[in-house]
Simulated scan of single mutants.
Amino acid sequence: MMRQDIFTKDQRLVILRSLEECGYDANESILNDCLDMYGHDISRDLVRNHLLWLEEQGLITLARLNNNGKDFFVATITQRGLDVAQGRAFVDGVKKPSPKI
């Protein structure tokens, strides 16, 4: 597995787990901050790319909003996304969470 794949999969898992911890939804700015807290200092553009990919997989839904001419996303985790975040389901492209001890 390539190093970049490891980071990509972990970033997607962090997004899903962050949505779970935030009460099931959050905007892209909050998710960017959550990723930063877990050591992923990535661009807002990459966060958006992850969100679009997660939406394509049915793990989240995205609301596309506009505030003063600026577009932004609000992500909501789906039941399938929650199952992946909690390790009850697996999607290739998202890191498997460690078992809870």
Rank of each mutant, 00 (worst) to 15 (best):
Gly58Thr: 05
Gly87Trp: 08
Leu82Ala: 07
Leu82Asn: 05
Lys100Leu: 13
Pro99Ala: 10
Pro99Ile: 14
Val91Asn: 03
Asn66Cys: 00
Phe7Arg: 10
Ile15Gln: 06
Lys9Ser: 08
Ala75Trp: 05
Asn27Leu: 05
Leu62Glu: 05
Ile30Ser: 03
Ile77His: 03
Ile6Pro: 00
Leu51Cys: 09
Pro99Met: 14
Ala75Ile: 03
Asp25Pro: 00
Ile15Ala: 02
Phe72Glu: 08
Asp45Cys: 02
His50Met: 03
Asp41Leu: 07
Asn49Arg: 13
Phe72Met: 11
Asp71His: 13
Arg44Phe: 05
Leu19Cys: 11
Gln57Asp: 04
Thr78Cys: 06
Arg64Trp: 08
Met1Pro: 08
Asn67Trp: 07
Glu55Ile: 02
Leu35Gly: 06
Ser18Ala: 15
Pro97Asn: 10
Gly69Cys: 08
Ile30Tyr: 11
Ala75His: 07
Gly81Ala: 07
Asn66Asp: 10
Phe7Val: 04
Ser18Lys: 03
Leu31Asp: 02
Arg80Lys: 15
Glu55Gln: 12
Lys96Cys: 05
Leu82Gln: 04
Gly69Phe: 13
Asp25Tyr: 14
Leu46Met: 11
Leu51Arg: 08
Gly93Phe: 05
Leu35Ala: 04
Gln4Arg: 14
Ile42Gly: 00
Cys34Ala: 11
Ala63Gln: 14
Cys22Val: 04
Leu59Ile: 04
Ala89Ser: 15
Thr8Ile: 09
Val94Pro: 03
Thr61Val: 06
Asp92Ser: 12
Phe73Arg: 04
Leu16Ile: 05
Glu28Ile: 13
Met2Asn: 06
Ser29Gly: 03
Ala26Ile: 01
Arg64Ile: 15
Arg64Thr: 15
Leu46Trp: 00
Gln79Met: 08
Arg3Glu: 12
Arg17Glu: 10
Val47Ser: 08
Ser29Leu: 10
Ala89Pro: 03
Leu82Asp: 10
Ser18Val: 01
Thr8Ala: 14
Leu82Ile: 02
Thr78Glu: 13
Leu52Glu: 15
Leu62Asn: 01
Ala63Trp: 02
Val91Glu: 15
Gly69His: 12
Leu62Tyr: 03
Leu65Met: 10
Met1Cys: 08
Leu16Met: 10
Glu55Trp: 01
Met37Phe: 12
Thr76Gln: 13
Met37Asn: 15
Leu46Gln: 13
Phe73Lys: 05
Asp5Cys: 02
Leu46Gly: 00
Asp83Thr: 00
His40Gly: 01
Leu59Trp: 10
Leu65Asn: 15
Leu65Trp: 08
Arg88Cys: 00
Tyr24Lys: 11
Trp53Met: 01
Met2Gln: 05
Lys100Arg: 12
Leu54Pro: 03
Leu51Tyr: 09
Gly69Leu: 04
Pro97His: 05
Arg44Asn: 03
Tyr24Ser: 15
Gln86Trp: 07
Asp5Asn: 12
Val91Asp: 04
Ala75Leu: 02
Gln57Met: 13
Arg64Pro: 00
Val47Gln: 02
Leu16Tyr: 07
Arg44Val: 01
Asp33Ile: 11
Gln11Asp: 11
Ser29Ala: 09
Lys95Ser: 12
Asn68Phe: 12
Asn67Val: 10
Arg3Gly: 00
